[in-house]
Design a protein around this nucleic acid. Structure first.
Lengths: 185, 185
DNA sequence: GTCTATATTATGATAGAC
DNA sequence: GTCTATCATAATATAGAC
């Protein structure tokens, strides 16, 4: 793997499991197995690495949603697939929180420029769910509100499960979220 | 106000609006109007200040809940009062997130000892809501699960409203949370 | 108890040889 | 492109005068 790529891979993982502020460039360099000095040939600052990480993550989400749009036949199945992320990534979510939500929270306090691309990723998810709910017959406005509500419930479930370090709590919330979707038209 | 108290007051506010890691002792000292050196006469470390802040916050929550238990007549009114926090503190929640949730998230990544007292505060809220739901006829187990769910929804609403910096989003979620309580027995 | 240095360490960032 | 050495700064923490 190229140096830049391995730096990015390490940064991406460390920013998630340790948070942005508490991950030093030395941490990243060590994890990636490259000398610290090498760093600034590929990135011009720590913030620059963050932007690259956020961009990579955003592209992954975009690709994932595109694939779900193609391979899953019904709007309901697509929404279901969004919720299923909470089950699939259960262990990591309980240990480190939501990759989007926890970073949004960390960067949310007085660093709006850094946070912007993350909001874009969140918006992608909101848009995706909104489209599915529209396909189920809701107006655009109503669909968006319900999409925000669904993702809010996901965020809340992860925050609590992360706080208590309790996978069962997460599983229970997932069942409840799922039920709230199933009963709606 | 005594020096120790003014340090604590400043720390409490800054840890909330800027986060723990991004608040330096110099920030606190300046805000409190005391020289940095003075600091270590009253506290033995930055972590020590955090513990004092968390303790003060926990005591406030405890007192608040005790008062609600005395002044509010019905279990439903008490639960309603919990939800109403989201409305009363709307502006701050949108700008800085939940004081409990955002710190839990920040300290959640690899600093369990620091986080412990915060979990205690969260647990107080869970217990309070659990008791009210028991009084409404639920079993203890079921009451606790529903209490966790209610607080999860509150956390989720604040996370999303904070991300989008949107008070309307928070208000909408509050209505939905309220409705979900009203319809249950 | 209060305040002025100052020690110490960690971190983001640079310079320059290869 | 890669690496070593180092700078500059900021932050936690300490020493010691008053």
């Amino acid at each position: 793997m190229e140096t830049r790529e391995s730096i990015l891979t390490s940064a991406r993982r460390l920013f998630y499991v340790r948070g942005y502020d508490r991950t030093s460039l030395a941490d990243i360099a060590e994890d990636a197995g490259v000398p610290k000095g090498n760093f600034y040939y590929h990135f011009k600052s720590k913030d620059d690495v963050l932007q690259a990480v956020l961009k990579a993550r955003d592209e992954d989400v975009a690709q994932m949603l595109e694939q779900w749009g193609e391979t899953l036949a019904t709007p309901r199945a697509r929404i279901e697939r969004v919720i299923q992320m909470l089950t699939n990534d259960q262990d990591q979510l309980v240990r480190f929180g939501c990759p989007v939500g926890s970073l949004l929270s960390e960067l949310g306090k007085g660093r709006d420029e850094l946070k912007a691309p993350l909001l874009g990723t969140l918006e992608r998810l909101v848009d995706f769910v909104t489209s599915q709910l529209q396909a189920l017959g809701r107006t655009r406005t109503r669909a968006r509100q319900d999409a925000l509500q669904l993702l809010a419930r996901c965020q809340g479930a992860v925050v609590m499960a992360h706080a208590y370090r309790d996978p069962k709590l997460l599983a229970r919330e997932v069942r409840s979220i799922r039920a709230s979707i199933a009963t709606e038209r």
